[in-house]
Amino acid sequence: MKQVIVAVALLASVCLTTACSEIQALIGPPTPTAVPRGIRVDPPQQMPDFTLIDHNGQPTRLSDLTRDGKAVMIFFGYTRCPDVCPLSMGDFKAYKRALGDAADRVRFVMVSVDGERDDPETMRRYVTAFDPEFIGLTGPEQEVRQIGLRYGVHFQKEKPQGTEAAYLVTHTAYSYLVDASLRWRMVFPFRAGAELVAEDIKQILGE
């Protein structure tokens, strides 16, 4: 049963079509009272390497970030997002703190879904304001879209009525844990609880 739940949840996170809504219906609405926690990718999924530009303007591969045996936590967001993204970066800080010594074995990365506006310098100011060790990656929208799709990440520009913003970006707000062998291991929902996330990451690091 547990495997079924994991499989269904995983499908929900990677599905690309309108069937999504049906899967969502199967899972049901999120319980507002429970602290959200991560879901294991089981079996782990080998992910392709990718190259984007880091917040110092250097081409950086995913494998550069895991080379010294570190796992990588990835969030896809953008700097002109006033609510969801700062919340998620704030949560990254909390995860890092909750990891204690194990935090040395994890890199926290935000990939911009708004390459048009998020140049490396903008990313640097943004991510390092949360934590000097956080890493910002940016690149052409199409490349980020292709990378994101492998994780089930979607994003789209919106210009809703009643805003003067040039556009807003609606985007998947999950976080993803990739291990040192570039295997995708966990999906964490928006606002996943820090203690639970730290527990899960430590377990993966210990395997």
Partner: peptide
């Protein structure tokens, strides 16, 4: 220069979006 009343909304499937409150 611009101040708006917005709501962060869960658009389903992990997508989060932002909308001006109409």
């Amino acid at each position: 220069e611009v101040t708006e009343i917005h709501e962060t909304k869960d658009m389903g499937n992990g997508m989060m979006g932002m909308q001006p409150v109409q």
